[in-house]
Deep mutational scan, measured.
Amino acid sequence: MTGIVKWFNADKGFGFITPDDGSKDVFVHFSAIQNDGYKSLDEGQKVSFTIESGAKGPAAGNVTSL
């Protein structure tokens, strides 16, 4: 699925993605970002991701920028 990064705190390594389908915002951890180098996201960035079952509920996985 796709969405827009609502916010991401690079110091803490997590944030939230707002899915394009209008569903509830999804937690994203830096370890789910699939790019080389520094793993961070920018507010407003368009991303593709999967929904994984995290310890505290749904979380984004396999996050790639579009």
Rank of each mutant, 00 (worst) to 15 (best):
D20I: 07
S23Q: 08
D20A: 09
A60Y: 02
D20S: 10
D21V: 08
F30Y: 13
K6L: 06
Y38M: 10
S65W: 11
T64K: 10
A32F: 04
A59Y: 15
T18Y: 08
T2N: 06
F14G: 02
I17K: 00
I33V: 09
L41H: 01
F30Q: 09
K56E: 07
L41Y: 03
G57C: 07
V47C: 05
D25F: 03
D21K: 06
L66M: 12
S53L: 15
K39G: 07
S53K: 14
S53H: 14
P19T: 05
F27Q: 02
G44H: 05
D25A: 07
K39T: 08
F8T: 02
W7V: 04
S31L: 09
K6N: 06
S48K: 12
S53D: 15
I33K: 02
G44K: 06
D11I: 14
I17M: 02
V63R: 00
E43N: 14
T18I: 15
T50A: 06
S65H: 12
P19Y: 06
G44Y: 05
F16Q: 04
D42H: 15
F16T: 03
S40E: 07
G37M: 09
I17V: 04
V26P: 00
G61N: 13
K56A: 11
D11L: 13
S23Y: 06
D21N: 11
F49Y: 11
H29G: 04
Q34S: 11
E43S: 15
K56S: 13
V5A: 02
D11K: 14
F27G: 01
V47N: 00
M1V: 10
F30A: 10
F14Y: 14
A10P: 14
S65Q: 13
F16R: 03
D36I: 11
G13F: 03
G54L: 07
F27I: 03
S31C: 07
S48D: 04
V28Y: 04
E43G: 14
I51V: 12
T2Y: 08
N35Y: 12
Y38E: 11
G15W: 01
A32W: 03
N9K: 10
Y38W: 14
D11M: 14
T64L: 15
F16I: 06
A55R: 12
K46M: 11
S65M: 15
S53M: 15
G44E: 03
D20Q: 07
S65V: 15
Q34A: 13
N62I: 08
A55Q: 12
T50S: 10
K56W: 14
D36C: 14
I4S: 09
I51S: 04
F30C: 09
A60F: 01
S65E: 13
S23A: 08
D11A: 15
L41A: 02
K56P: 08
D36R: 06
V28R: 00
D25G: 04
H29R: 04
L41W: 04
